[in-house]
């Protein structure tokens, strides 16, 4: 077994143990209803985390995603309210916009050799500001096509509802897994995260890869924005504040190395579901304050950061042993 697979197994183990604990206290947790809700409630987070995983694997970070989701929601709501465009057309325009936005940030990061942290921080303020410009108030979406999207679901055995946006998230993860693990682009992303200088020596086109990584994250943020607007039925410029941090947390809890180069897309899915599970448990319990979600997530993050530090130390020790 490879050392870098270990965090993935830990992630899966924590999820299963967590689920078992919940199930022992509340047998209902295993019902398809709960599972359906888990997927629906975390759909937008999961989609944005797919983009974030790729960014972090490449050794970068994207702080703009929360703002871009909010901007997307407001953009869709305003355009639908003020023009006669069909929602699908609006989606297409939006996705092109957010993809270009991400690409532009990637281009700046590469060209100016600026830390991704700074560039995407600027991108975060810019997108949030643009959302405010469009509207300060929450704008409801009343288009009938939207109603049908919101209510689209497949019934699972046990009366659980597998909603459209839940399925969208799963499909996104499937695509993300293929991109990360089965394409040359994915291999280049891992290579960049492993070491830029070496990656260049091995023939990675750093500029192109960086632009594509952030463009992909932009595309995912736009997708998440669409899903979020379907989920809430409105666009609000104050929505999803801090979602970028939640997404980063999901990626790390999913076993991806925060410094890049190691991790699995599938782990991120488990990370997102683990966070959703904690939330569900607190809702079931009823007496716990919702802040406990954050506390448990904080603890989990700490565990994973320590675990990864330990693994790095371990492999260094093994290397030193091998060289001696």
């Amino acid at each position: 077994m490879n050392a870098r697979t270990l965090p993935l197994y830990v992630t899966i183990a924590i999820f299963l143990v967590g689920w078992a604990i919940c199930w022992m206290q509340f047998p209902n947790m295993l019902s398809t209803r709960v599972i359906g809700n888990l997927l629906t409630d975390n759909a937008y987070l999961g989609i944005v985390a797919v983009g974030m995983t790729l960014v972090i694997l490449s050794g970068g970070i994207d702080l703009s995603v929360g703002s871009v989701i909010a901007f997307s929601g407001v953009f869709i709501a305003i355009v639908l309210r003020d023009t006669g465009l069909h929602p699908l057309m609006v989606f297409a325009i939006l996705l092109v916009l957010t993809t270009l936005y991400g690409a532009a940030m990637g281009w700046l990061i590469d060209r100016l050799a600026m830390p991704a942290f700074i560039v995407t921080l600027a991108g975060m303020f810019l997108a949030r500001g643009a959302a405010y410009l469009l509207s300060i108030e929450s704008v409801p979406i009343t288009h009938e096509f939207y109603q049908s999207l919101t209510s689209a679901y497949w019934l699972m055995p046990g009366k659980g509802r597998l909603t459209l946006i839940g399925v969208l998230m799963l499909v996104t993860f499937a695509i993300g897994i293929v991109i990360a693990h089965k394409t040359r682009f994915g291999a280049s992303v891992y290579a960049l995260g492993g070491g830029e200088a070496t990656a260049r020596l091995m023939g990675v086109r750093q500029g192109r890869t960086t632009v594509l990584v952030y463009a992909f994250s932009g595309l995912m943020s736009g997708m998440a924005g669409i899903v979020f607007s379907i989920y809430t039925g409105s666009g609000y410029s104050l929505a999803t504040v801090g979602t970028e941090l939640t997404a980063i947390a999901a990626v790390v809890i999913g076993g991806t190395l925060l410094t890049g180069g190691a991790g699995y897309m599938f782990g991120t899915l488990i990370g997102v579901l683990t966070m959703g599970l904690i939330q569900t448990y607190i809702v079931f319990d009823g007496s716990l304050s919702s802040w406990w979600t954050r506390i448990v997530i904080g603890l989990l993050l700490l565990i994973f950061i320590l675990l990864q530090k330990g693994l790095v130390k371990l492999s260094e020790a093994r290397l030193a042993g091998g060289a001696a």
């Binding site: 891992y190 990656a199 020596l201 492999s315």
Partner: peptide, 11 residues
């Protein structure tokens, strides 16, 4: 600095 330790031998 030759190769990437975080990729597999085949990669």
């Amino acid at each position: 600095v030759n190769l990437l330790p975080n990729l597999t031998v085949a990669q």
